[in-house]
Structures are given as C-alpha cells and as structure tokens.
Design a protein around this nucleic acid. Structure first.
Lengths: 248, 248
DNA sequence: CGCCGAATTGATCTTCCTCAACATTGGTGG
DNA sequence: CCACCAATGTTGAGGAAGATCAATTCGGCG
C-alpha cells in the first residue's frame, strides 16, 4: 500500500506553521506535539490513507498534498464528502468514535504527520489548549460539510461547480496551492463529479458552460478563474472568512 | 421570540440520563455540569433557537422535543442539514468558532439546557472528560452529516426518503420518540422536502410510492414502517450502531 | 507509434421541477 | 357547533435538468 514511514520534519521546522493562516504556536505546545508525534508518512497518489471500517491506530495531520474523504453505497455509487488540504486532521472520527465511516484517499502524493490515536486522551488531560484546537477543527470541518450539503440539496449543477471551484480556490490559497486566480487542480473530472453528485458527462458539459461564459479556463491540471465576480454570482457564493486557525 | 427561561430540572434528576443510550455520569461530573448550566429554556414550535450570524452567548443541550438545523441561500432556497433530538448539543460551532453559519429552529415545543459559551473553555481546562465528550459529539454529528451528504449526492428521491425515515426512526427510538415501528413525526412534508433536497410536490409523490409498495404508512403526525426489511433494501440503508454516547 | 484512461459530444430517456388546480386538515371565531 | 380560512397535501400536464448509452477524440506515456 505505497506507504513509507520516515521521521524527517521536526515540528519546530514545520513548513506549514509559517503560513499566515495558522495560529502561532508556543514553544511549549510545539514540544508537546513533538512528543505526541509518532512519525511521518508518505502516501502515493491514489493510495488509501484511512479505510472505512478499518480500525487503524493512527490519526494524521496532512502536511503536504491533497487528499479527499469519500463514502460509497454498496452498489458502488460514491460520494466525495470533502477535500483535505495541508494542516487538516485526518482520522479524527476514528480516534474518537473508534470507527471510520468513510475512506480517505490521497489525491496527490502526500506527506502526513502520524499520531497514535490512543494518545489523544492524554492531550485532553495534559494540554487543554490543544484539545480545544482539535475540537475547533472538528467544528470547522462540520461547517464545510454543512455548506457542501446546502450545495447538493439546493444548487443546480452549474451553481455547484462554480461554488466548488471558488471554495477550493479559497482554501487552497491559504496554504499556497492557489493564487493569482489560478488553482493547481490535481483532481480529474471524475473526482469533481463525485463531489458534485453529478455524472462525469454532465460535469464536462457544465465546465464547458462556465468556460463559454468566460468565467473559468480549464486545463488538465489547472483551473483559472477569469471573472471572479461573475463566477461568485453564478455560484451564490458565500465566502469562508479566513481567520487564523489552529493546527496540530 | 417565544422563549422563557426557567430553572426546573436539576442535572441529577435529568430525565434523559436514565435512557440506556447515554453513558452514565459520575456524581462528580454531574456537579460540574450543574455549575456550568445557566438555566433552562423553553422554545415554542417554529421559533428560532440560534440564528445564523447572530452571536448568541449560549450553547444548548436539547432536553425535550425536536429541532432542526438549516441553512439558506440568498434567494431563499433552504436546506435542512439535520434534525436534532434530546441529548444533542446545539450551538457548538458558535461556541467554538464564534460564528454560526446555520440556523436552528424548534420543530416542536422544546426545552433546552442553557450554558454560557465562554465557560466552555473552563471545561477544557478543568474537566477533560467532558471536553472529550463534547468533541465526541461533534465528531458524531459530522458522521451524520456525512451520510446525509452521501444521500443527497448519490441516492434517488425514493432511496433518500426511505433512508431518512429509517434514520430518523432509529435515532428517535433511542430517546423514546419512536418504537414499535412507529415514529411520532412532528415534521411536515415541507420539512422533509427541504431535508431531502426535492420539492414538496415530489415528496408527496414519493411518499405515495413507498405507501403503494406497502413499506410505510403515513398520517399527519405519524409514520409507520410496515416492512422494515424491504424499506432498508430500497434505502440501501446502513444502520447507525447504537453504542452508548455521552451527553452534557 | 500505439495504447490507455480521461474528456467530449450527440441522441435519447428518466427523474424531478414547475405551474396550476383542487382536496384535506386543523384551527378560529361567530 | 358550524363556517370559514389558512396551511398543508394531492394530482395532473408539460418542461427542464441531468442520466444513460455509445461513439469519438484527446493527451500523456511506454
């Protein structure tokens, strides 16, 4: 399963923490996280990070790359629940509820920080500030899914697509994966379809529509927003405000 | 806004805690929660409990009745994100993220336990077990939304409805709001439609289909499951297992 | 160059929406 | 207690959004 454990990055030298979007860490907190950290993991594009119903003993923070959470019906229909970007926790449900009801797959080659999930309890006992951060992140994830749910339930395909592009752009920008109206998009139209709840055929046609309206341009691995204002209008977009957030 | 504060129920005499579904509480924990509790609130059917963008200083536990979380687009299209039953936290996103991106409305007359949200931090500091419970509940809520998301994205209207009925029945049963294949259903077809992401017209027709298949019966305020096995099949249902859960 | 997976396009079918009329229910006031 | 009203639910007809099926085309890559 294309996974390799290494111990490269020390938390103090964590390349993520410098990003403006993350709340600064005290020396003390860093030391604590270091103790909590079990190692580092590299996962290749397309490989599974956490499998549904699989009781892995780990909890992760995505350090580098894209991943996505998804969930399938018995007959194979699959829904992408959300995309994950660096700084986000993976496997929290598993750690807390002792069961995973979705799968997480690497969209690109990824690097992850590995934690032992049994130690999560010690965080709650010894480091309330970190425990609070974890809960904060869980609540934020819920917000993201809430708005995705609103999309699937109420928006048309075109609105959904426009919305997803803007949403991913904004999130990717905070970690340097997008900027200058350009989003490095490692997902295929297939992934997009599964997130939007429409077929690939219809996704292709919908992209074309936005393209013809000169709102976006689309190349294999790059999405460019040509007219943000108009795109937001199509999307009925409500921006995610970008206050500093915690990270573990 | 039809809200009245009282101080009736002492946590020790909380009518909910006896339910088998909830994890037993130590005397010590009860005392702590008592201190945290600010009072009790009664909200009438149809009234708003927490409003989007409104920075209420409170966090609630639903004690009695049904509520629902929903979120709307500017043009009025509205999506029900989830229904809330006794024992569930309301307003956690607000308490943690300091902003609410959805509204919570009482579906029936409800009673709520009121907490001051600033005190949430003291829970994390002084009572890690309770903090853990809060996070647990957040993670579980995420699971529920995940599976709702799967429905909206991948299931047909008929499957969605069948699924929602089973899901609500199972959840309601754990708190005594359903049993014997009968669910006391305080929601209108309108609410159901907004949860399923389809129009009321189509909801009505879809109910009729399940009715004609003799899977359910439907009266104004009561849904009866006539053939659970067949209904599960239609729904592609995956049951929520019912392990004991925490409550605050 | 040839292959394979991903993307595009067209034609047709199904699901669900829209609009509009009508029925039913529960509540309210005379 | 009945009559009326508003909200909710039902039914029909026609239309639009999106699915399905199938045939190409495109774009890396060995």
């Amino acid at each position: 399963m294309n996974q390799a454990v290494t111990y490269k990055t020390k938390c103090h030298a964590c390349p993520l923490r410098n990003k403006a979007i993350f709340r600064p860490f005290k020396e003390e907190e860093l030391n604590f996280v270091m103790k909590f950290k079990a190692g580092e993991l590299t996962v290749e594009e397309g490989a599974t990070i956490v499998l549904e119903d699989n009781n892995s003993p780990h909890l992760y923070t995505l350090l580098e790359g894209w991943a996505f959470r998804h969930k399938a019906l018995q007959d194979g229909r699959r829904q992408v629940l959300n995309f994950a970007l660096p700084g986000e926790l993976i496997g929290l449900q598993l750690a807390l509820l002792d069961e995973m009801q979705h799968t997480v797959t690497a969209l690109t080659d990824t690097t992850l920080c590995v934690f032992h999930k049994e130690k999560i309890w010690s965080i709650f006992q010894d480091y309330p500030a970190l425990a609070y951060s974890i809960t904060w992140m869980a609540a934020r994830e819920e917000q993201l899914i809430d708005s995705h749910l609103l999309s699937l339930g109420q928006r048309t395909a075109k609105e959904r697509l426009a919305n997803l592009i803007l949403h991913l752009y904004d999130r990717a920008e905070t970690v340097g994966y997008a900027g200058n109206m350009t989003l490095d998009a490692p997902f295929s139209q297939g992934h997009l379809s599964e997130a939007l709840g429409i077929t690939t055929v219809h996704t292709s046609r919908t992209i074309r529509k936005l393209h013809d309206l000169e709102l976006i341009s689309w190349t294999r691995d790059r999405i460019r927003i040509l007219n943000r204002q108009a795109l937001e209008k199509v999307a009925c977009y409500e921006p995610v405000e970008a206050t500093q957030r915690p990270m573990i």
